[in-house]
Design a binder for these strands. Sequence first.
DNA 1: CGATCGCAATGAAACGTTTCACTCCGTTTT
DNA 2: AAAACGGAGTGAAACGTTTCATTGCGATCG
Lengths: 354, 354
Amino acid sequence: MPATPTITPVPIDEPSSTGSPISIRDVAATAGVSIATVSRVINDSHAVAASTAARVREVIARLGYVPNPMAKVFSSRESHIIGLALPRFHGEFMTWLLHGADEEATRLGYHLMMTTIAKGEDGSARRHIIGSLLIDALLVVITEQDDPLAEDVLASGVPTVVLDTDMSAQGLDSVILDNERGTREAVDHLLRWVEPGSLYFVGGPPQNFDTQQRSKAFAAALESRGHQIQPGQIEMGDYSLEWGKEWAIRMSRRGKLSGAVLAANDKIACGIMHAAEDLKVSVPDQLRVIGFNDSQISRLVRPRLSTVSLPMAEMGALAVRTLVRRIEHPNAEPHCAKLQTKLLIRESSTAIHF
Amino acid sequence: MPATPTITPVPIDEPSSTGSPISIRDVAATAGVSIATVSRVINDSHAVAASTAARVREVIARLGYVPNPMAKVFSSRESHIIGLALPRFHGEFMTWLLHGADEEATRLGYHLMMTTIAKGEDGSARRHIIGSLLIDALLVVITEQDDPLAEDVLASGVPTVVLDTDMSAQGLDSVILDNERGTREAVDHLLRWVEPGSLYFVGGPPQNFDTQQRSKAFAAALESRGHQIQPGQIEMGDYSLEWGKEWAIRMSRRGKLSGAVLAANDKIACGIMHAAEDLKVSVPDQLRVIGFNDSQISRLVRPRLSTVSLPMAEMGALAVRTLVRRIEHPNAEPHCAKLQTKLLIRESSTAIHF
DNA sequence: CGATCGCAATGAAACGTTTCACTCCGTTTT
DNA sequence: AAAACGGAGTGAAACGTTTCATTGCGATCG
């Protein structure tokens, strides 16, 4: 009997189905210690004698005490919830990001509270997640540098990490892809077979940060080889299959659907390949194609699509890590991390079938 | 000057950048009312005289008071957070579910807290979200009827809705797909061209609830036409492209790769079509194929894949609605809702090209 | 005209934790 | 031996809301 009842030991006889759940006070009373001590045992925040701690733990187990998370959040002013604001993407793309972020968050003792943001939406949904300041921090996917969401986020003062666009100049930590290198690798690969003059870049939306970076890197790669970019050699559209088709048909009309294309994502690339098939332009023999994303469709089309693989899960995980570091060091200098991509060579860019 | 200072009016001179943020007490003191009245103005939970309410609102605006959400959660014992537990799916499938659920949750004033559950995982991740009882309710995607997760959820006592598997018998509200009808429609469609004896079902994992329902409905549809299911006419595997290929190659070896196939998802169907192409079996002329999901790839492959479209966004939305109803009526009878699917006819199942 | 009703508003008690400031007491330092 | 120290534990405030029980008070009812 290790119990030492200094305080009148309230006889709580296993309140199994009793109305109110047991609180830290019940534990303290039963174990004959103060609630402060119980709190410290739970959080092992401060030295507690081993024997006392053991006794408290025994009582906790016996009474089946579970700390009330809402009270804890209230009292400690931290919810350990990370808000995650995403555009309404569909596709694996986002699920990888989500899983990567979720896994890391769980590992670090955080939860992810998700909301989608319809593009061009008024601020209501933003405030929905930011304003309900149950969140300790915010992860936000932004695809355009002038997205007004950034303002809101900055104004709210919530620790934030921006995904997919570099906003470190605006004072927000960012995690982005190394589009320069990914693009350069793809260009170098394609230039093994075609002249710089017959290499094209087909972008997504002109405002899209990734598309901007990739097109710039594309131009830089060609110019570094002494080639002057010609009009029509770089074009923007959107991230759809249809745009890819449209581009290919347009090029075909001008009799220029040959050489090589770097598309800003796999869907555009697939659209180009579809159109090429209809137009009897052989891929890769007459037209070599590379996309971005390594999406499922890139492995499914025939010929299989060469693509720049993006480490989305790592991106999510790194963003969470960055965010947690930011919570701990609120005044550190904003930083932008770049993640390496990987060029996956498949049949659409090389005649050699694997 | 509509102020009526009955209580000593504490002079809070715009504590703009003062340390602690203003609380309901500051508002009450400034407006010359009690905190109870302020609370009721905020939540308009009870009648407040119009003039008083206006004055309070004015003070709230002037002081820039924002109720502390953590305190609110603590005091009201509701977080308005719905936990969402998902398997580690990748693909649009899940994003539609997510967006549907998110939109409805936002509409109803709830937030979604997400976690992924690796299959066959120990209970830790489950408890991560269930145990951290910040959640008011739980949405959980379960794909197998004997998933032990159901036990945990039931034991936790959290209001729960199960997605994708009928667990109403176990006492959990469920939202599922009408696999019977979806399957029957697909079978009816295919039987316009082929005999019941040369119609095959290629399933996913045998434990998967949808696959089970679809295979049963497949058998029932054929038997209702007086056809006796033959060995090998229904086979299970998994939800991968590879399994589709394997099945097709196996059938080809037996000289039976012809007629029509209903695959349990689009990936399997694509695998079958790929193999058929390699084996010089023409789709749809020699082999008609239908999948499930209406995934992006179903629109990308050639010939385009006929498929049973699943209303995933509605599923998410309905699940949230059901959950909110459950929160309000904790003792209602568990109910299982079925969502209608839609057969999309494309080229893979019919010779008529659109 | 007194009793009753209902609205507007109040006062104060919860809610369950964390944490600061402090006490107690045995041990080491001077 | 007195003083300083530090480990273990205590007590109580604080956090900011919701909500219950209550009070005033003018209007309605019988």
